[in-house]
Amino acid sequence: MKKIIIQGAITILLFFGTWFALAQIDWIKVFKVQMVTDKTEQKLGEPFWKIIKTTEKENKNFHLVNAIESIVTQVCKTDLKEKQ
């Protein structure tokens, strides 16, 4: 019985050990996950923007664009900080 418990513990340890060892590698960099995500976001964003452009009226008022951009920048900065 003791032998089985030891063997079972070794098997479990082996799995978690493999996982832990593999987790030391920065797979996000290896597989360029961020780059692929950014590309997908851009590709998805383009048709969405096209749809919005054709169905809605684009307002190019300088003051309005400036105000919205400052809000967007603030939101993005906070979001990035939270993610980090």
């Binding site: 799995f15 493999t18 996982w19 593999l22 987790a23 590698i25 797979w27 996000i28 996950v33 995500t37």
Partner: peptide
């Protein structure tokens, strides 16, 4: 989201 931890787990699962 996809993390290094997740990819490491999937590789470990594939090996086993």
């Amino acid at each position: 989201t996809i993390t290094s931890n997740y990819i490491a787990y999937i590789i470990a699962v594939i090996i086993f």
